[in-house]
Design a protein around this nucleic acid. Sequence first.
RNA 1: GGAGAGGUGGUCGAGCGGUUAAUGGCACUGGGCUGUAAACCCAGCGUCCUUCGGGACUACGAAGGUUCGAAUCCUUCCCUCUCCA
Length: 379
Amino acid sequence: MREESGAGKFGFEVLHRDAGTGARLGVLHTAHGEIPTPVFMPVATAGSVKALPQEWLEQFGARILLANTYHLYLRPGHERIRALGGLHRFMSWSGSILTDSGGFQVFSHRDLRRISEEGVHFRSHLDGSAHFLTPESVIEIQRALGSDIAMVFDECTPYPCGYADAEASMELSMRWARRCRERWDRLGDGRGRALFGIVQGGVHPGLRERSAAALLEMDFDGLAIGGLSVGEPKQAMYETIAATVPLLPADRPRYLMGVGTPADLVRAVGMGVDMFDCVLPTRNARNGCLFTSRGRIIIKNAVYAGDDGPLDPDCSCLTCRRYSRAYLRHLYMSGEHLSAILNTVHNVAFYLDRMDKIRQAIAFNSYGRWLEKLENTGA
RNA sequence: GGAGAGGUGGUCGAGCGGUUAAUGGCACUGGGCUGUAAACCCAGCGUCCUUCGGGACUACGAAGGUUCGAAUCCUUCCCUCUCCA
């Protein structure tokens, strides 16, 4: 068990802006350390980045993970985690933790919930038991977990969604955001903890604008762009990001929720996004899809059966240093647990390394070249 | 030597006269996965053509036979497995 550091105040500084693009270099301060941005947060929904022990995440340079309020509330329960000293201590993670509010589960468990003004009635996906989550209870749960960055409870608007429905959904999210803010303030000193608001509004710039304006009034520590990558065309996603980022205050971190592919990250950083999370590197790893410096490799493909070379010659992760494509394919085909482990090691290391290189490029004012490369490869 | 059971597509295994190129599972091949109900899901999977609607051929141990029609019924043969000597 590690000691809680406990001290420190949440904060964000922009250290440098790239000369030719919207990209910016910054640092997040939380009670659990400093986090250089732009940053990718590996997803640890249930208090674990699937297939990876915390030690390795530290080795890969991960400073912040994303955990999930809804999942931890159901199992093992936030009160249990509180009693065990909070989520950091429970999972033995001394870095920072951002908790998603469960808004995405409202979206993805559509058949198991009923939304009202007051909150969301859920049927547990685990045992069918009934639960009621409100903006207030979601804040309480995140406090119990002890997350460094909490997210407001929102409704992740689906796609496609007509203007009127997207508007109603966004407005509900804004009313919930205010209730989250109020409960957060009533709980008193967040001890260095941050609360982020989430911009909704589907792919409608006008709605995004109103959403951002509403959140600005509430003075959140950071602003997220939610409701993207839910089935809309890529172009619509990029246009929405581009239209939304300028609406967000420059002195606060900007977090694009649930995105994305390596190319998505490069583009969004160029638009001024500071934080990302996505299940792609971990989930795809377990499903035999690996991200490399030369594009995606579907390791289960028969062509790799006799390929003695490294997965990614330009990668220095444990997997690439030591194991061949042929072996990785064999592990996948055989259903060996090691397959998920080695694949996840690579994908997570690849994402973190990619963010590292992105930060360097921004520092040297050469980020424009990354965007050009993207255009040239058509990625 | 005697009694019984059985041989089906890569594999296991249904089918027991016609809507059967033959249910299913597995394996295999390909695709998908973006705030994780995911080590998951979808599709294809005899051969050759196709104007993508379909068409032609070859298939259920082997060879004959019955029938308008057979993986399915009959005969002979070959081969497996179980039990008894």
